[in-house]
Structures are given as structure tokens and as C-alpha cells.
């Protein structure tokens, strides 16, 4: 199971890198979304996919899933959610001010030498 997950995560990272290297700003932000999905799945996988029951205390269960990676993922999800919201608004403002979403047209400063 871990092997399968690793391959899937690898594909997510591949797609994320491809999108982040593209020219359009929105594609880049979609790429960062995929990157954080891959990251969170990786945390889950690296904690081990063993354990029969969800980590909620109940009678007669002895084999729980590792609760720590789930807490880490929950933290990482809200953080990346906040950052993504910020970057989307920033992309919107940049489009309004600069009139382009092409990263190639966003380089250097006018008075730079």
C-alpha cells in the first residue's frame, strides 16, 4: 500500500513541478495546490498506513492508526490554505495593477541596470 501511495505522490509532485514551471500565474498556483496535496499525502504515508481503527478511544480496540501524522497534516492543511488564499488574492491584485498574468512579463524593474 505504501508503494502505491509513494508512486501516486510522485506523480502529484511531477505534475506540481510541471505546473509551477509554466508561464501563467494561475497554473502556478494550481501547481502549489497539487504540491501541498502531495506533501500531506506523504506525511500520512510516512507515518505508516497500519492500524485498524481511527484514533478515537473506544472499547475493545487495540490497534489504532498513528494519530500524530494526522495532527501534523491538519496543521499543514490550514497553513497552506491560508497561504493559498493570500496568493490567490495577490494574483488578482497583480492582474489588476500590472494587467498581465504572464510571469515572463513580470521580470526586472524599469530602473534596473
Amino acid at each position: 500500500m505504501e508503494i502505491l501511495m509513494s508512486i501516486l505522490i510522485g506523480f502529484l509532485f511531477m505534475a506540481a513541478v510541471y505546473l509551477i514551471l509554466s508561464r501563467s500565474l494561475l497554473r502556478i498556483i494550481i501547481g502549489t495546490g497539487l504540491l501541498s496535496h502531495g506533501t500531506h499525502l506523504l506525511l500520512l504515508t510516512m507515518g505508516g498506513l497500519g492500524g485498524k481503527a481511527a484514533p478515537v478511544l473506544s472499547d475493545g480496540v487495540t490497534d489504532y492508526a498513528d494519530p500524530l501524522p494526522q495532527a501534523l497534516i491538519l496543521t499543514a492543511i490550514v497553513i497552506s490554505f491560508g497561504v493559498t488564499a493570500f496568493s490567490l488574492v495577490l494574483a488578482y491584485r497583480t492582474y489588476n495593477e500590472l494587467g498581465t498574468d504572464n510571469m515572463d512579463l513580470m521580470k526586472g524593474t524599469e530602473d534596473n541596470d
Binding site: I20, T32, L35, S36, G38, T39, H40, L42, L43, L72, A76, I79, S80, V83, S87
Partner: peptide
Amino acid sequence: IVSSSLFV
């Protein structure tokens, strides 16, 4: 964002 993902 990329470096933070790499950190995780």
C-alpha cells in the same frame, strides 16, 4: 511556498 512544502 515551495520551500515550506519541502520542509514538511
